[in-house]
């Protein structure tokens, strides 16, 4: 079984059976502030719903973003700790790929997936269709832009824009299962913050006497 965790937008956890046994359970919270509070209960409810135990999990799928830092890290910390706890592989997947999967089931042709990056900026990725393994084919991104700079066409073709505020861990699980079945490599376990930390280099100490 694959345990998938994504906190790049709200919090989403899914348990997906692999090897032909049907059945998956996904548990989500759209709250974009309470990742640390909900992550444990979401994981627990997936296990309980499928009558599974932690020992049934064979790999952990981690949505690596892009996403706002603080929330994104909660899911990644949980995914890596669960993998360490069971001594099982950690399979990083770009969170936008789950949205791209969703979008390509609805629209033909190239789509641009757009999510909120806060501070009046947007994360985006472009998908031009399905690859032969049934995976959304990402041809650009993930990137970070101001709203007016988000691309509207790709190689001369108009893009269908697909705004999303949630990422389905269940879809991340399906993507990971298809990658595993096709023997494809996974991403590096590296959070896609796409932004440097806010820091100001200290200047010379300020004057204190007037």
């Amino acid at each position: 079984m694959l345990l998938s965790i994504d906190t790049s937008a709200g919090s989403s956890v899914a348990l997906t059976r692999v090897e032909g046994i049907p059945g998956a359970f996904e548990s989500s919270s759209a709250d974009t502030m309470k990742h640390a509070e909900v992550i444990g209960s979401l994981m627990e409810s997936c296990l309980t719903e499928l009558g599974a135990s932690a020992a049934d999990v064979t790999a952990v799928v981690a949505g690596v973003g892009p996403g706002p830092f603080t929330g994104l890290r909660v899911g990644l910390a949980a995914a890596s700790a669960f993998a360490v706890g069971r001594g099982i592989p950690l399979l990083p997947v770009v969170s936008h790929d789950a949205i791209g999967f969703d979008a390509l089931e609805e629209v033909d042709g190239p789509v641009i997936v757009v999510t909120d990056a806060r501070r009046r900026e947007l994360y985006w990725s472009i998908y031009d269709g399905w690859c032969s393994h049934g995976l959304p084919n990402r041809v650009a991104g993930p990137s970070l832009s101001r709203p007016e700079e988000v691309p509207v066409d790709f190689e001369g073709r108009a893009l269908t824009r697909w705004d999303a505020s949630e990422v389905s861990a269940g879809l991340l699980g399906i993507i990971a299962a298809r990658r595993l079945a096709a023997g494809l490599e996974f991403e590096h376990f590296e959070p896609l913050y796409l932004r440097s930390p806010d820091v100001t280099m200290p200047g010379a100490p300020k004057r204190v006497n007037s």
Binding site: I5, T7, H35, A36, I39, G40, M43, E44, L47, A54, V57, F69, T70, R73, V74, G75, L76, A77, A78, A79, S80, A81, F82, A83, V84, G85, R86
Partner: peptide, 17 residues
């Protein structure tokens, strides 16, 4: 933000075990 990394990891570790 620092605390949340530990909280997320601890919950998952406890559940995994």
């Amino acid at each position: 933000g620092a605390l949340m990394v530990g909280v997320g990891a601890a919950k998952a570790l406890a559940l995994s075990l």
